[in-house]
Design a protein around this nucleic acid. Structure first.
Length: 575
RNA sequence: CGGGGCGUAGCGUAGUGGCUAGCGCGCCUGCUUUGGGAGCAGGAGACCGGGAGUUCGAAUCUCCCCGCCCCGACCA
């Protein structure tokens, strides 16, 4: 039993100055966590109980799915990460250190290498597969910007699993098993979440989905179709387009367009010159970027902006993408700023990609590559060609769902889980092969699956808190019942003490506020802040043979007979 | 890394060159109080982020450094 009189807990009346988001503010105020350094936190007793409940749920669901738990060191030698090139690829985000002999070590940011090597060390036959193993581990990433308290730390706990299969069909099954286990886990944790298509990004690999907990303070943006349920990370959003159905446009016509360096000024001039009115969406914007040193033009409708993050995610292999600077323009004298068109990009040595809205056969008003000149009827496929289509424009609410063409909504969320079909990248790099039925060596295919365990504490706090405090789902709350002795009579404390013991005997986890020196007001405020789902008050009505039962979430209160309190409370909670 | 803000007791803060650095919460002692963050009295607790400088005198001005928060870049 937890007793407030001895619990290592000091609640704060004021919000800490360095906390903005609700989970951070309340977890600090309610005495669950304390900051040690940017993105590094200590767990106090209440916080650690909560954290461990989440860990327990995660572990139970992983075990139930038949995955085996292992545990790696957090402190790792350089060599395995050198073999997969991540010692350098990970860059400054990796916490690096040296031992006394000067050998390089790192604090593991993720453990693909170690898992792969473990399996390589033990297994060598297809008969041993499939295999899924996991660990719950502290991870270290020297984030450029830790933020939002527990949500994005430099030290955090992650449950990471890896699946090993002989072929793609097996990987698909392992992936699905993890997906199912994740759904069960997050449901038990009481989280509201969406599963969205994602880009596999830095991890490499192909298919990938994120588990996102919707929440206004989340740092991920995703697209949701409320009609058909389509959901995608903005980076993975697919543009809905139809084939060009109009007439074949006339030949390109160049017209004078002095002083129209912007889309708006061009639209205004055009509508003055020609009879058929246009909007910015009829113009073609040529956004120039440097992709790993290669001059690249991204063609987008004039009413759209390029989202560099999406561009990066959708240009396979691209490492460094930046917008054109003055010195880049200087190297391409053929580019007249404000009057650029794709018509002779190839001749100028510029690679061209287009937003999918620039369908083959469609015609556009764009620059004529000469000062004060634009051109119209510039037609894709006839007057210019592109390397490929690329998803690169900023996604907006109201864009059409790729599956049912309904306008989508855009929402923010916290990423609580991510599942990937990793493929053979790590197995290849580290030489993880097994013999197949024909005695032939096969590279194993892998999946990688993560749950942010410590982050889940914050995500649940974000989704469940209210104005007066935290408000945990029962399964992860630090206790089931917050028992308050409100009053000064010994009889109240004696009764409450007995009740606390009896409730524990009945299987309830009890936090007993047995403080003699705190006023009822203080105790009620603390109970609400701490957020245990049921609050039982033993106080002035005890003399009438009654105690009070409250539900934290609804605020609902009821008087119950003190004589049969245990049974009544247990029944109320079970019901 | 770019932009913005901040650093004074455990927490929240006042104090823009001049007495012993002030207040609220919390903490300790005593008395009173006990159904919504109690009252009175007394008390402990601060190298004012660090260093250098300017000055008769620096929390306060200057420079450098460190740390923290927010937005962006980046990232599971």
């Amino acid at each position: 039993m937890l007793r407030m009189s001895t619990l290592l807990l000091r609640t704060l009346r004021d919000d800490p100055a360095d906390a903005e988001v609700a989970s951070h503010r309340l977890l600090v105020r309610a005495g669950y966590v304390r900051r040690i350094s940017a993105g590094i936190y200590s767990w106090l007793p209440l916080g650690y109980l909560t954290y461990r409940n989440i860990e327990r749920v995660v572990r139970e669901e992983m075990d139930a799915a038949g995955f085996q738990e292992v545990h790696f060191p957090a402190l790792l030698p350089r060599d395995p990460y050198e073999q997969t090139n991540r010692w350098s690829e990970y860059g400054p985000d990796l916490f690096r250190l040296k031992d006394r002999k000067g050998n390089d070590f790192l604090l593991g940011p993720t453990h693909e290498e170690m898992f792969t090597l473990m399996v390589k060390g033990e297994y060598s036959s297809y008969k041993d597969l499939p295999l899924s193993i996991y660990q719950i581990q502290t991870k270290y990433r020297d984030e450029p910007r830790p933020r939002s308290g527990i949500i994005r730390g430099r030290e955090f706990v992650m449950k990471d699993s890896y699946s090993f299969d002989i072929d793609d069909a097996g990987l698909e099954i392992s992936y699905q098993k993890h997906r199912d286990a994740y759904v069960k886990t997050f449901k038990r944790l009481g989280l509201d979440f969406n599963i969205v298509s994602a880009m596999s990004g830095a991890m490499g690999g192909s298919k990938s989905e994120e588990f996102l907990a919707p929440c206004p303070t989340g740092e991920d943006t995703y697209v949701l179709c409320e009609k058909c349920g389509f959901a995608a990370n903005v980076e993975a959003m697919i543009t809905k387009v139809d084939a060009y159905a109009g007439q074949t446009p006339p030949a390109v016509e160049v017209f004078d367009s002095p002083n129209t360096p912007t889309i708006d000024s061009l639209v205004e001039l055009y509508n003055g010159l020609f009879s058929e009115p246009i909007t910015a969406a009829n113009t073609l914007k040529n956004v120039l970027v440097m992709v790993d040193g290669v001059a690249t033009s991204i063609l987008v409708p004039g009413d759209r902006e390029v989202d560099l993050k999406r561009l990066g995610a959708n240009l396979p292999g691209a490492q460094d993408i930046r917008i054109f600077e003055e010195e880049d323009f200087a190297k391409f004298p053929g580019l007249v700023k404000g009057y650029i068109g794709p018509q002779d990009a190839a001749a100028q040595g510029i690679k061209v990609y287009a937003d999918p809205r620039i369908v083959i056969g469609s015609h556009w008003i764009t620059g004529a590559n000469a000062k004060d000149k634009h051109a119209r009827f510039v037609t894709h496929g006839r007057d210019f060609t592109v390397e490929a289509f690329v998803e690169a424009v900023e996604v907006k609410a109201g864009d059409l769902c790729p599956t049912c063409a309904t306008p989508v909504v855009i929402d923010r969320a916290i990423e609580i889980g991510h599942i990937f079909q990793l493929g053979r990248k790590y197995a290849q790099a580290l030489g993880l092969t097994v013999l197949d039925q024909n005695g032939k060596s096969q590279v194993v295919t892998m999946g990688s699956y993560g749950i942010g365990v410590s982050r889940a504490v914050a995500a649940i706090a974000e989704q469940t808190h209210d104005e007066i405090g935290l408000n945990w789902p029962r399964e992860i709350a630090p206790a089931d019942i917050h028992l308050v002795a409100a009053g000064k009579d010994d009889s109240i404390f004696e009764f409450a003490n007995t009740l606390a013991t009896d409730l524990e005997s009945a299987g309830m986890r009890v936090l007993f506020d047995d403080r003699r020196d705190a006023s009822p007001g203080v105790k009620f405020k603390d109970a609400e802040l701490i957020g245990i789902p049921y609050i039982v008050v033993v106080g002035k009505s005890l003399q009438d043979g009654e105690i009070e039962f409250r539900v934290r979430k609804s605020g609902e209160k009821s008087q119950i007979p003190s004589g049969s309190a245990v049974a009544t409370i247990v029944a109320a909670i079970a019901g």
